[in-house]
Write a protein that binds this DNA or RNA. Structure first.
Lengths: 133, 133
DNA sequence: AGAGGTGGTTACCGATCGGATACTCACTAC
DNA sequence: GTAGTGAGTATCCGATCGGTAACCACCTCT
């Protein structure tokens, strides 16, 4: 299993633009993708998710744990070590996520074009009554 | 094309529990499903979405329009009539939404069980140090 | 002229979300 | 006994979200 690259998510569009969201909060889908290939330590997750503060990452992990997508295991020896891994339920999310990613790959540009277009021509819908019509 | 029933969404779980979210805001996926079978008027949408206030519904529709999922068409005669319909891009969302709904149908109970279980046994993770051990 | 319908808008409000910054506790290695 | 590491917490803050309540412009029908 390869280690997670720091630029794993650098190419992604900001998630506020994301038209499809899974499992709770903003970062949860990215966390799930990090765990796709096997268990990871907290500090490992922080590498690709370097823009997420520890508080927020913990929140996200706790929420995923509560929902049964992720299992948290703590080892105390020889040094403190906490690993997170997908449960079967978590794995089952990968399929719909894959479909959604495929959708995004196919249609992302259309969406962005629509946004730019609507920014360029704001619909001036209810200002008609200012005229003398 | 059948008219939309008022109880169309009554059986749905509150959307805060929804592990999969599409296209922007809270109500957007429901709006898309309302438009699945063809164009609908604003007042038609308000029937199944009777728990959504006009402000919020309008916001949702505007956002879907900006993103190119929905087309808004206004007719002034003989009475004011505004219809909303899915664009091809909007239609293309139905497929990933279907997959996500299938996922939910198959795994919803697991998720709810996990939640109840974690509510019943809150993980008392960092209170160990209160003891004498 | 007034009632009613259609498709909204505006102002306000509380809750939640995500982020910034700083701090902590347990443990190990030196 | 001090420094470092791993895995977080604590506190504060601003922005956004969703909701309530009230209002509005336009049209048609009677």
């Amino acid at each position: 299993m390869e280690s997670l690259r720091p630029d794993m998510f650098d190419e992604l569009c900001p998630s506020t633009l994301n038209p499809i969201r899974f499992a709770g909060d903003k970062w949860a889908p990215l966390v799930i993708r990090c765990l796709e290939d096997g268990p990871r330590r907290y500090s490992e997750l922080r590498v690709p998710l370097h823009r997420v503060t520890p508080k927020v990452l913990t929140q996200s992990l706790r929420s995923l744990e509560r929902d049964g997508f992720v299992r948290r295991t703590e080892y105390a020896v020889p040094v403190r070590r906490v690993v997170y891994e997908l449960t079967p339920l978590g794995h089952s999310m990968l399929e719909p996520m894959r479909v959604a990613c495929e959708w995004a790959a196919d249609h992302w540009d259309e969406l962005l074009d629509a946004r730019e277009l609507s920014l360029a021509n704001p619909t001036d819908r209810y200002t008609r009554h200012h005229g003398n019509g």
